[in-house]
Simulated scan of single mutants.
Amino acid sequence: MTAPEQLASVRYLVDDVTAAVDFYTVHLGFTVHTNAAPAFADVVRGPLRLLLSGPTSSGARATPAEDTAPGRNRIHLVVGDLDAEIGRLHAAGLSFRSDVVAGPGGRQILLTDPAGNLIELFEPRRG
Rank of each mutant, 00 (worst) to 15 (best):
I75Y: 09
E5L: 14
L110P: 02
F40G: 06
P64F: 09
M1D: 12
D67S: 10
R107I: 00
R49C: 15
L94Y: 03
D81S: 06
F23S: 12
A62G: 08
T68W: 02
F96I: 08
R97D: 09
H90A: 15
A115G: 01
H76V: 11
D42C: 12
V78D: 11
L13A: 09
A8K: 15
V14W: 05
P4E: 11
L52S: 06
T34A: 13
L111K: 00
P124Y: 02
G87M: 05
G116L: 01
Y24M: 12
A20P: 12
E85K: 08
Q6E: 11
I86C: 04
F122K: 00
L94W: 04
S57D: 11
G93L: 07
D83F: 04
G105S: 07
V10E: 08
R126G: 07
D22I: 07
L89A: 04
S98K: 01
I109E: 03
A41N: 09
I109K: 00
R107Y: 00
G80C: 04
L89W: 10
G105A: 10
G59S: 08
A65G: 06
A39M: 06
R45H: 15
V14L: 13
L89G: 03
F122T: 01
R11D: 10
G116P: 03
D16P: 13
L13Q: 05
V26E: 15
R88L: 08
P124Q: 05
A20F: 13
D16A: 08
E5S: 14
S98L: 03
Y12N: 09
R126C: 02
L111D: 03
G127F: 01
L52K: 11
L89R: 06
L50W: 10
V10Q: 13
S53D: 14
S95V: 12
T63D: 02
S58W: 07
A20I: 05
A36D: 10
G46A: 15
S57K: 03
P4H: 14
G59P: 05
S57N: 06
T25W: 08
I75T: 10
L7I: 04
P70L: 05
S53V: 03
L82R: 00
S58F: 13
T34N: 11
D83G: 01
V79E: 11
P47T: 12
D15N: 10
H76A: 14
P38D: 04
R11K: 11
N73R: 07
D113H: 00
L118G: 06
G106F: 00
G29F: 05
I86K: 02
L110S: 03
P124A: 02
F23M: 12
Q6R: 13
V44Q: 15
I75M: 09
